[in-house]
Nucleic acid binder design. Structure first.
Length: 201
DNA sequence: GAGTAGATCCTCT
DNA sequence: GAGGATCTACTCA
């Protein structure tokens, strides 16, 4: 199992990187507790020209500052006061591309994830949707800016990949405020996977 | 099964 | 002071 190299994240085509994240393993290691999931749903946020992105038109604030960093770090923010959303920053410095990881299939540490989410047994709600995923993996704003090749949180390739026929694209979820950019097919997911969230329009 | 309200808090205007 | 890259539970049918 290999951690993805920085060159994977620092390419300039965020859509390509987004597609290639499907099937990779997202791993967290909190105080020795290792949990991981296979990524089955992601969304691309295309820098300054994407109205749905926090970085639209070059907006740069304390919150989204990390989007302007070199690719290969985590961007975590709190949404609706309740949910932490985990993003992968891509491309190079000053180009604020990011990928929202929306869902993963539990692989390791399922009992730990159940404990964190207060669930009794594994079902498809454990890591379905960005809020649940972060909760199960123990991700919060403390991880903002962390390297994705670090000890506590990283993304790895274990040689597995989904068949192209199993993947599909659709508009993104929950970004209706973005006008016509809300219609862009920037969401990629694995067809028929029970952990994939949302209802594409 | 579909539709809606409520939770809850940080960030930006 | 408003609202958000969400989720769940509850209503009504």
């Amino acid at each position: 199992m290999e951690k993805l190299p920085l060159s994977f994240y620092r390419r300039n085509n965020v859509l390509q990187v987004t597609k290639e994240l499907l099937g990779k393993l997202l791993v967290t290691n909190r105080e020795g507790l290792i949990t991981s999931g296979r990524i089955v749903e992601v969304e691309a946020y295309n820098g300054v020209i994407d109205k749905a992105a926090h970085s639209f038109s070059g907006r740069r604030t304390a919150r989204n500052e990390i989007m302007y960093a070199d690719g290969g770090v985590a961007y975590v923010f709190l949404c609706y006061g309740i949910h932490y959303l985990f993003n992968v920053v891509t491309n190079s410095k000053d180009t604020p591309h990011a990928i929202l990881v929306r869902a993963a299939e539990p692989v390791k540490g399922i009992d730990i994830m159940l404990q964190r989410t207060g669930k009794e047994k594994l079902d498809n709600t454990l890591t379905r949707g960005p809020g649940n995923l972060s909760k199960a993996l123990g991700i919060n704003t403390a991880h903002n800016g962390y390297s994705l090749r670090g000890k506590e949180i990283f993304i790895a390739d274990d040689g597995f990949s989904f068949n192209k026929k199993e993947m599909a694209a659709s508009p993104r979820i929950g970004v209706d405020y973005a006008g016509k950019d809300a219609l862009l097919p920037y969401r990629f997911y694995v067809k028929g996977n029970p952990f994939v969230s949302g209802k594409p329009k």
